[in-house]
Amino acid sequence: MTDTETPPLQPKKRGLTRRQRRSLSRGIQYAVFVAAVTAFAVVADWDRLQNQFAQADIAERMFPDVITLALKNTVLYTVTGFAVGLALGMVIALMRLSSVGPYRWLAGIYIEIFRGLPALLIFIFIGVAVPLAFPGTEIIGGTYGKVALALGLVAAAYMAETIRAGIQAVPKGQMEAARSLGFSPARAMVSIIVPQAFRIILPPLTNELVLLFKDSSLVLFLGVTLEERELSKYGRDLASQTANSTPILVAGLCYLLITIPLGFVVRRMEAKAQEAVK
């Protein structure tokens, strides 16, 4: 045998050093990325895209309705859904932590079902099954009530798990200190534990708000009047009226108008929470 079988510990002097190899690999990655973007830009038919998605006059016609009606409704649906979800999620989280077995099981079943189903199915269920099951009854607030309920039911499952994790993250000594001062378990939970838990879960809860904001587009499966349309429905309707997709693009930008600042707020809160831990 002429070759050595074990590789030398020191890299051979000839050839590339580790550092050179790393920058070469980085260079190749950049080249591939630039090539892909260039190919996309060259191959795509920009004129037709602009025709279909960026007609200034159509976009202009959408204002102010896209803000005063569609965005307003989207925000309204999201906020009411979030409120219902938070209240219900809180109850389910407390049930999940209860010492009473049946409460824990019920909460567990609820979470598994509503986390496992697509939000779309729950909207259809609220829109179709509830009127069938309880004929003659109206959900308070009409469409607004139905959306708040459907979004709330979905959100509650996720928020319950988040709230439970937050409550469990509060050190055990806090409950002991409260009890030793004479707080009842319920009062200690409300006055001492939950306020601390919410500080911990504020970032994930805000994330949940962003998710709900997007899920509010599912309202179109409930059948809405012209006045009740939100961004997605409004954009689609206008797109089919004008036979042009510009309204879709404008609606999309309106979502980002809210979600990007919210995301920024979440990152700020997370950074602050990190700092507080140190």
């Binding site: 050190p171 200190a177 030793s180 707080f183 001492i192």
Partner: peptide
Amino acid sequence: IDAVRRRIGMVFQQFNLFPH
């Protein structure tokens, strides 16, 4: 028990002040 505990002060090793 909550009424009795009001008459008994307790001090813990880890202080357990309410941080918020």
